[in-house]
Structures are given as structure tokens and as C-alpha cells.
Design a protein around this nucleic acid. Structure first.
Lengths: 408, 408
DNA sequence: GCAGATTTGTCGTCAAGTCCTACAAATCTC
DNA sequence: GAGATTTGTAGGACTTGACGACAAATCTGC
């Protein structure tokens, strides 16, 4: 492995030919995905949703139950004449993902089952930026142990959200400025720490904004949406892009670094080395500075700011006005470029949405081209910090949905 | 139809179940797509590329030939021991698309066959912005007539590239500032003008940058690339995005308006109504202004600029330096956000690439985050004005590739 | 020039998947 | 309680691709 050399693996989207048995697996995946994404459904609903016949659906459901990834629970609510259809639901224990979030102020782990149910979760507040990567790995392993012990079969994989530039291919963290990390082979370290030695667990690592986007897409404000932009205000600003219902991670996984868009050439220096980046005017530090709060960025400083806003502090109100303007300007760039159906705000942008909203919407409307509907749709996320965990789980569970048989 | 109301049609990417006959069509599509995108191939090459067996490939090829979309031409070059494999190629006449480009200074039409072969093409230089939409439609129909007369079967569809905001769903041109168009139902107008009255041709309209991206992706600098950004410098600046090998058009088709990214809050007013947009500092007008050329933007002014650059005119050299810097800055935003494998330049950015390059690359390197390979890959397009026509054809032919049987 | 190796095309058979039809089961409506 | 309606089940039919055997065509080596 040569971490210095970022070889771009051409995805070569050459569609492959399919055989009848691949067809079966495809159809099983389709049915399971419906159950996973939209919740329990009757057999007849599955039939209409997939376009398959009753006999085929019966066959597929039987197979899914045999694989342990679905269960048929009795009957449904009778909603009209005719024989009631049996309800099928994803079986959470059928495929469990270990979701991990490494944030600046906390570490969280969760076991998430098929259907998106969080089976168990634990979060430890801690100054992660004071820890070496190996220490973080140890803590994650220690936290995950008890959760995983409850599942005899073991998880199908591990998904990790990290605030930094991550090479998707091998889960290599190029740099995570807010953690003080550089060149960390996180996936392989975690795989060894969590696996039984001889069989390391498959670990996938991705940027926290990308996974936040995926989480909100599946379980939060973006349900059913095709194209969406998730903008996460952590210490910096990151974006997660969803195109046609799929997470867009870029050629090597570095997509979504919206925080370093140039929006103000005469602005401040950014810690990325450039000047005038979006996050220098719309990020948490800029907000606290404008509000006259000297604390380091973080939950405490934000709580203080919200207190002052509640009490009508004029400097705080002015600060959210100015920052809201810049947030709106940057969102305008994203909206013009990507034309999403909705923009979902996460992190502190979500928490302060009600305060940022007026100036944000004004600035966005001024910058976005005439696109009557799409420009206005900015909503706060509904999942909060859960979004990243859900997204990390989705990353892992997607493999099961693609081929439920492989994980028998 | 309610042009004022931009209803976002949720794509609902719910995968559908598949039947055996759909499987067959899928596999036929896979084979035909290989021939269309990568050119002629022997049967055995098709087998290894698709993972299907010889007998199945033979069956599929037979069907494709029967549909008229492929031909088997004799033998191949003998490249080793063993019986030589018959070469299969897409039959251009099997599916012909009418590609149309409506630009500011010219109108072009072409018939493009399967495999991407341009069967016939015609371009008329004309000040299109002085024409009403209905006149343009009439001219297109007049130009297309002789080309289409050569194909008894008629084209499978029409693809149109327009420099403006286009609603993909119904080919409605919201606004095309450089043409002076507003609220033009171009697709239906063209469909009626080209069709035989009772059966209007299916017409798809898209932004010229989006189609330029598609053209370069399939036939030019982006062959085999998964994620790519195409930046077209016309009078304004537009971008076309390709994600995982597919054109990304946004929820309603308005994606790619990179020209109206804010990059300089203190900058000039833009004709979009906002201020400091990228195209006010990196567009053609800015370039000509900086070079001291008073002509209106267009081919003549650009030729003049290139003459001056050749003769070493200092003001011209300074102009490309400044504009190159801004182009690089904007590309940095796009690269940070999308992490493409390559950035392809079109329009005047392509023509002047060699002159813009030094300052462009410096600015891009300064703004792009540490991404060793991906940041540097800026290349000029290879297709020039053909890119838009190829892209428009691809838009139409994609339907045939998806299901070759439907177009028997 | 000729025999063997190698690769490919063709044909028949087989397994897998889904559809279709008929019938039984369960519920609602009148 | 009878009819209508919807769903589950079972068997046969059809489509599809895989597999194995054999023939065809070319190259290599003597």
C-alpha cells in the first residue's frame, strides 16, 4: 500500500451481463431493500411495488425468511374486502452493522440492524483531538465489545464516520485537521482491533458529512428524495451529496469539501492554507467570533450562544444575521451547481437553523437562479448526531441489500 | 402544462423486480452498449467483458443482428493461435439520432448513428440571438430535412443542446439569456415541426454544458472516466457534471450553473442579477475587457485575442494570466466539492487552454485540498463544438441501449 | 507439409427463474 | 348468510443462460 500515492481507481461502470440466478438475487435484494427503507409491507404491497407476481413474491419472501433477514408476522390491518395479506418486515438481527462516529468531542458506537433499527448505542464525551489514533481505536473497540457480544453471529461489517479527508478505497484517513490526524490507516487498524484476529472485520470509512447525508437521506429529512445536499456545520463545514438517491463520494472519496469554496477573496486565512474559504465566514468559529464568545468551538460555546439569542443579546443576533447571510451565499453556489430537491442542514447549522433562517433565505434567494421551487427548500436535519451513525450503518448494510444470499 | 410551476418530480429510485425477458433485454443492452461505447469487438471479447458464455453471446448477437442494430463483419485480425472470432460492430443506421445544437452564433444539426458515428452534419453561422424561437425551430427543421431524408426509418429521437436553463422533464427552456429566450416550450415546438404531424418525434432538450460533458465523456477527453467535470466557456460559463459515468442533471435539470458561483463579493454585477459571479471574472467578456478588446464576445473577438497572444501583446498576456487565475480558483471550488478524476475544458477555455494554463494551475493548486492526483488533471476537450452534438445524440441513443428490442 | 495445441462456433440438454391458470382461503358488504 | 373481492398456494409452461461435446479454424513446431 502506498498512502502517498492516490491512485484513482477508474470505476469503469461497465454493466455486467446477468444470469438467472443473479436475477433471483437481484429480486431478493429489491424486496429486502423495500423492507429496509420503507418499513414493513404486506406481500401484495411488495407485489405492486416491484411489479412481480404473487407467486414470485411468495417465493422470494420464503427465501428471505430462510436467510434470516426477514420475518412474516401474522396478519395486517384489514383495509377493505378480500383476504388480508401477511405482513413482511426486515429482521433487524438478520444483519447487524457496527456504526462508529469519531467526532471532535465524542466517540459513538451503535449496532444497527436491517430496517435501520438502532439495537444499542453508546456515546462517550471526550476530547478526541487529544488522543492518538491508536488510542481512539482502542476506545472504539472497548465500547463496541459489549454491544457486539449480544449478537452471536457477529456484525456484517463496520462503518466509520470521520471528520476528515478519507480515501474510500481502503479507508485511509488522509488528514483530519480537527482531530489532528494525518495519514492514518484507520480501516485496517479498526479491522484488526475488532476482528477475531484471523478474520478481521470489513471496515468502511467515510467522511462524516457524506455519512450524515446518507443518514438523513434514509432515515431523516431526505426520505424519498433523489437529489439532496447535506451541509454539516461541525468545526468546519462539510457537505454530503446525494445524486439520484445514491451517495456521491467522488472519484477517490474526497468529494464534499464545500467548506473550502472561495467566497471572499479578501477574507481571512483558513487553516487549509488558502484564504477566504466558506467556513472562514460561515463556520462555527466565525459565528462565535462575531457573537463575541471567546470559548473554543464546541457544544458549550454553542449553548452559550443560544442562551444569548434567547435573551435577545444584540451582538448574538447580529452574528447569526451575518453568518446566516454567508451560509445562504454558499448554499446558493451549491444549489446553482447541483439543483437539489432539498438542502438539509446538520451540526450547528441545524441547531441554529431558526435563527439563521431569515438572512440565510434572503441571501440564498438573491444568489440562486430563478428556480421557483428548488431554491427554497432548506430544512434542518431531523436526525441530529444519529445521522452519521445511520449513514455509517447504511454503508455497511448496502452490501447485504445488494445480495442477501451472500450473508446467509 | 404549467410552465410557471416547477414541480420537482421525485425520481423515486426504487429498483424494480426483473423477469427473464427483462433479463434478456438487459443483456442485449449490455452488449450493445459495449459496442456503442468502445467500438467493434470480437465475440470472445464480448464474452470476457460481460462474463457471459459463448453460447449466450452468440444468441444475443444473433438477436441484435436481427434487430438491425449490429452487424457481424467477417473475421478479425488473427492475434494468436485458435480459431479467429467474428467481429461484431454496432450498425450506425440501426438507430439514428438527430442531434441539434442551438448556440449563440450558429445552429448545427447532425445525424448520429449507433456507435457514435456522425452520418451527416451541417452548421449554419447566424446571429441566433436575433431570431425568435419559432424562427430557430423553422431553421432547424429546414436543415434537418435533407439529413433525415436519407434514413427511411426515421430517427429514434431528437436531442437538443441549448445555452440556458432547461427543465429536463418536458424540454422547457426556462431562460436562455444569451439567446434572449424566456419560457420557450422548445421540445414540443420542435417535435411538431419535425414529426409527420400525427406522430411528433420525441425531443429531449438539455443544457449545452451538460451535453458537452456527455459528449466528451463518451467520445472525447473523458472516455472511460467515472467522475468528471466539464466546464464550458461560452459567453457565460456552464458546467456539466458526470457522476459514476452518468450525466448529472439535477432534480429538475438545472444543475451545472457554475458560472454563478460567488467568488468575489466585491466584484461586478452579473446579468443574473447577483454580483461577483464566477463568470464575471472568468468569462469571455472579462477576458476581452482585460485584454482591451472592444468587440462583442464571439469567435471574431477570440481570434483577435489569439493573434495578439501570438504576437506577444503584453496586455493580452496579462489578461489571460488574470483570467486564468480566476478560472483556477473556480475550478478549485469544483474540485474540492466533487473530487473528479478529470476536469475537461470546453469552449473558449479549451481554445485558450495553453495560454490560461500556467496561472490556472497555480491557482488551482493553491485552492484545492491536498489531493495529489486528482487536483492536477485539467485537460482541454478534444471534441470542440462536436461535443454538444455527440452529447445530444447520446441522450437519445441511451434509450436504445437500455432496450434494443423496443426499437426493432 | 503435417500433426498437435489452442481457441472459437454450434448444437443439444439441463437447471433456474418467473409467469400463468386454477383453486382454496379469508375477509368485507349487503 | 350469500356473493364479491382479494390473497395464498400448487402445478405446468415458457424463457433464459449455463454446461458439455463436437466441429471448425488458426498457429506452432518439426
Amino acid at each position: 500500500m502506498q498512502p502517498q500515492q492516490d491512485d484513482v481507481v477508474a470505476p469503469v461502470p461497465a454493466r455486467a451481463g446477468s444470469t438467472p440466478s443473479q436475477l433471483r438475487r437481484h429480486n431478493m435484494g429489491v424486496v429486502l431493500e423495500l423492507l429496509h427503507r420503507d418499513g414493513p409491507a404486506s406481500r401484495s404491497e411488495l407485489g405492486t411495488a416491484t411489479g412481480l407476481t404473487r407467486s414470485t413474491i411468495a417465493d422470494l419472501v420464503q427465501d428471505l425468511v430462510a436467510c434470516g433477514v426477514a420475518v412474516e408476522s401474522g396478519s395486517a390491518r384489514p383495509t377493505g374486502p378480500g383476504r388480508p395479506s401477511a405482513v413482511v418486515r426486515a429482521r433487524p438481527e438478520g444483519a447487524v452493522a457496527l456504526a462508529v462516529e469519531v467526532a471532535v468531542e465524542s466517540i459513538a458506537v451503535a449496532t444497527v440492524g436491517l430496517g435501520g433499527e438502532v439495537l444499542a448505542t453508546e456515546r462517550v464525551e471526550s476530547a478526541v483531538d487529544a488522543l492518538a489514533p491508536a488510542e481512539v481505536v482502542d476506545r472504539v473497540a472497548a465500547m463496541a465489545g459489549p454491544l457486539l457480544a449480544q449478537h452471536a453471529e457477529g456484525p456484517v461489517g463496520v462503518g466509520v464516520a470521520v471528520p476528515g479527508l478519507v480515501r474510500r478505497r481502503d479507508g485511509f484517513v488522509h488528514v483530519a485537521p480537527n482531530l489532528g490526524w494525518q495519514e492514518v490507516a484507520l480501516a485496517s487498524m479498526l479491522g484488526r482491533a475488532l476482528g477475531p484476529g484471523d478474520r478481521p472485520l470489513p471496515v468502511q470509512v467515510a467522511n462524516e458529512a457524506d455519512l450524515g447525508a446518507l443518514g438523513e437521506l434514509r432515515r431523516g429529512a431526505g426520505r424519498g428524495v433523489g437529489t439532496m445536499v447535506y451541509v454539516s456545520g461541525d468545526v468546519g463545514i462539510g457537505a454530503g451529496l446525494v445524486i439520484d438517491g445514491r451517495a456521491m463520494l467522488g472519484a477517490t472519496g474526497y468529494a464534499g469539501e464545500a467548506g473550502h469554496m472561495l467566497v471572499d477573496p479578501g477574507g481571512r486565512d483558513c487553516r487549509c492554507g488558502a484564504r477566504g474559504c466558506w467556513e472562514t465566514v460561515a463556520g462555527e468559529e466565525a459565528l462565535l467570533r462575531a457573537a463575541g464568545i471567546d470559548d473554543a468551538p464546541g457544544a458549550r460555546a454553542l449553548a452559550l450562544l443560544r442562551d444569548r439569542l434567547r435573551s435577545g443579546d444584540p451582538q448574538a443576533e447580529h452574528a447569526v444575521g451575518v453568518v446566516g447571510h454567508w451560509v445562504g451565499v454558499g448554499l446558493g453556489n451549491l444549489v446553482n451547481l447541483l439543483n437539489p430537491e432539498v438542502v438539509v442542514l446538520g451540526g450547528h447549522l441545524q441547531q441554529l437553523h431558526e435563527h439563521l433562517r431569515p438572512s440565510l433565505e434572503t441571501a440564498l434567494a438573491a444568489r440562486a437562479l430563478a428556480q421557483p421551487r428548488s431554491a427554497a427548500h432548506v430544512v434542518p436535519g431531523t436526525q441530529g448526531r444519529q445521522a452519521q451513525l445511520h449513514g455509517a450503518a447504511e454503508l455497511v448494510l448496502a452490501g447485504v441489500l445488494r445480495d442477501p444470499v451472500a450473508r446467509a
